[in-house]
Amino acid sequence: MIQNILGTISIWAIPVFLLAVPLYGACRGVKVYEAFVEGAKGGFQMAIRIIPYLVAILMAIGMLRGAGAIDMLAQWAGPVLEKIGFPVEILPVAIMRPLSGSGALGMATELIQTHGPDSFLGRLAASAYGATETTFYVLAVYFGAVGIRKARHAVLAGLVADVASLVAAVIVCRLAFA
């Protein structure tokens, strides 16, 4: 029920928005076509501006993945985390999540298909994936768009959010599904 309502909102949100904004603008006397074109001009520069930042971050992440460093980290950290009751099978997905969206999606899908989508691990992988964004990608694109090179505390804050949501996903899934 709730999902249906939200699903309908998702489908209609963009067309309604694309209609409502120019319509409101026209009512307020804005020359909508001219304003649109004026704003759209910025799209090209912005996309081009983020390229160097995106290349730098994706290259470093790609190299880490290619080297097998993420599997290695999961293997090292696994035994320690297992002692405190952490389901280690999910660890590679969790490490990949802030680094690469497509990488984490692939690993989560594999886990879901291996253990079954209705298993505890399958649901945990899905919840952990869905609960957060690809931190490093967002940082590179957003800061890149305005030429920020000193990110200050943004990286750490993003990673704190990732760890907190992972811990929360494990706890909530234990309560709901185990």
């Binding site: 904004v21 120019p22 649109f36 004026e38 759209a40 001009k41 910025g42 912005m46």
Partner: peptide, 11 residues
């Protein structure tokens, strides 16, 4: 980007 920046400009 161009699409949304255009709409935002109208807004």
């Amino acid at each position: 980007m161009a699409l949304w920046l255009g709409i935002v400009k109208i807004a």
